[in-house]
Amino acid sequence: MKVNRIALAGNPNTGKSTLFNTLTGLKQHTGNWSGKTVSHAEGTYKYQGQEYLFIDLPGTYSLFSNSTDEEVARDYIVFEKPDVTLVVVDGTSMERNLNLALQVLEMADHVIICINLIDEAEKKGIVIDEEKLSSKLGVPVVKISARNKRGIDTLLNTIARLLKGDIQTKPYRLTYRAEIEEQINQLEPIVSELIGDGYPSRWIALRLLDGDEALLKKLHEQIKSNGSEVKPYEFGTIIHS
């Protein structure tokens, strides 16, 4: 039986780990990410005859390689390619939390936005139109309260439908200034040629334009493990050409 890998991403204090614990219960184990001191937790859950492996990524505010936590979360989404990335956001602080969600949408296609703490949001008079938000973002949006187990069945059903192909996504991608978009358009096909179409070439082009040295190193490691002869300086040559 295929085990479907579901990555949980989100800001700290969004209830992401509470959701992870609600779903996996005692069927989980912890350790450290390979070569890192950052804690790693994963656990299993069966739903409609399918087995899910939930991976609780480190809580981060961004995915820009500013910390080990950010690198771990980013690298898992981009290079390990989970079947679904579940972005957990705080329903009482949507504007701040959606910054990370928009970054994930640039990196992956199979994404679900999970609005947690919806009970607290409602107490504060916050009204969230998940259907309108889903239409804007191009991915499913589900409201839950992990602590009270509200909306969990809807969330699991949405994951199952996305995995089956019953839900098609078209993630929203930010449009940048004209000069940046021109550079992306020039760089993206070269990136695709060098590393193949299995990676988010537009996002990688953006990070290369930012001079993300940590990503350059990771790309070299990944490509080398796949038997390619591409060297880090080749990316540098592209950026500065």
Results as ranks from 00 to 15, higher is better:
Lys2Pro: 14
Lys2His: 14
Val3Trp: 00
Asn4Met: 06
Arg5Leu: 07
Ala9Ser: 12
Gly15His: 10
Gly15Lys: 07
Gly15Pro: 07
Lys16Arg: 12
Ser17Trp: 06
Ser17Phe: 11
Ser17Ile: 02
Leu19Thr: 04
Phe20Pro: 09
Asn21Trp: 04
Thr22Arg: 15
Thr22Gln: 12
Leu23Gly: 13
Leu23Ala: 12
Leu23Thr: 08
Gly25Pro: 05
Gly25Asp: 09
Leu26Ser: 15
Leu26Glu: 15
Lys27Met: 05
Lys27Asn: 15
Lys27Thr: 03
His29Asp: 12
Ser34Gln: 08
Lys36Asp: 03
Ala41Arg: 09
Glu42Tyr: 11
Gly43Leu: 05
Tyr45His: 15
Tyr47Arg: 02
Gly49Ser: 00
Leu53Met: 10
Asp56Val: 00
Leu57Glu: 00
Leu57Pro: 04
Pro58Lys: 01
Gly59Ala: 08
Thr60Met: 04
Tyr61Asn: 03
Tyr61Pro: 00
Ser62Tyr: 01
Ser65Tyr: 10
Ser67His: 00
Glu70Asp: 02
Val72His: 00
Arg74Met: 06
Tyr76Gly: 03
Pro82Leu: 08
Thr85Ala: 14
Thr85Pro: 01
Leu86Val: 01
Val88Asn: 05
Val89Gln: 07
Gly91Asn: 10
Thr92Phe: 06
Ser93Tyr: 04
Glu95Lys: 14
Glu95Leu: 09
Leu98Cys: 04
Leu100Glu: 03
Leu102Cys: 10
Gln103Leu: 10
Val104Ser: 03
Leu105Glu: 08
Glu106Asn: 11
Glu106Thr: 09
Glu106Arg: 03
Glu106Ile: 08
Glu106Ala: 12
Met107Lys: 06
Met107Arg: 08
Met107Phe: 01
His110Asn: 15
Val111Lys: 02
Val111His: 02
Cys114His: 06
Ile118Thr: 12
Ile118Gln: 09
Asp119Ser: 12
Asp119Gly: 10
Ala121Met: 08
Ala121Leu: 05
Lys123Asp: 15
Lys123Thr: 13
Gly125Thr: 03
Gly125His: 11
Gly125Arg: 12
Val127Leu: 12
Lys132Cys: 14
Gly138Gln: 06
Val141Trp: 12
Ile144Thr: 10
Arg147Cys: 07
Asn148Pro: 07
Asn148Ile: 01
Gly151Met: 06
Asp153Thr: 11
Asp153Ala: 11
Leu155Phe: 11
Leu155Gly: 11
Leu155Tyr: 10
Leu156Trp: 06
Asn157Met: 05
Arg161Ser: 14
Leu162Gln: 07
Leu163Tyr: 08
Leu163Arg: 06
Lys164Asp: 12
Lys164Trp: 03
Pro171Ser: 07
Tyr172Ser: 04
Arg173His: 13
Leu174Pro: 03
Thr175Pro: 00
Tyr176Arg: 13
Tyr176Leu: 15
Glu181Pro: 05
Gln186Gly: 14
Glu188Asp: 08
Glu188Lys: 12
Ile190Tyr: 04
Val191Gln: 01
Ser192Glu: 14
Glu193Leu: 14
Asp197Val: 04
Gly198Cys: 08
Gly198His: 05
Tyr199Gln: 14
Arg202Ala: 12
Trp203Phe: 15
Ile204Ser: 02
Leu206Cys: 10
Leu206Ala: 10
Asp210Phe: 02
Asp212Arg: 05
Leu215Phe: 09
Leu216Asn: 00
Lys218Ile: 01
Leu219Arg: 04
His220Leu: 02
Glu221Val: 01
Lys224Thr: 13
Glu229Cys: 06
Val230Glu: 03
Tyr233Cys: 02
Tyr233Glu: 15
Glu234Lys: 09
Gly236Asp: 09
Thr237Trp: 07
Ser241Cys: 01
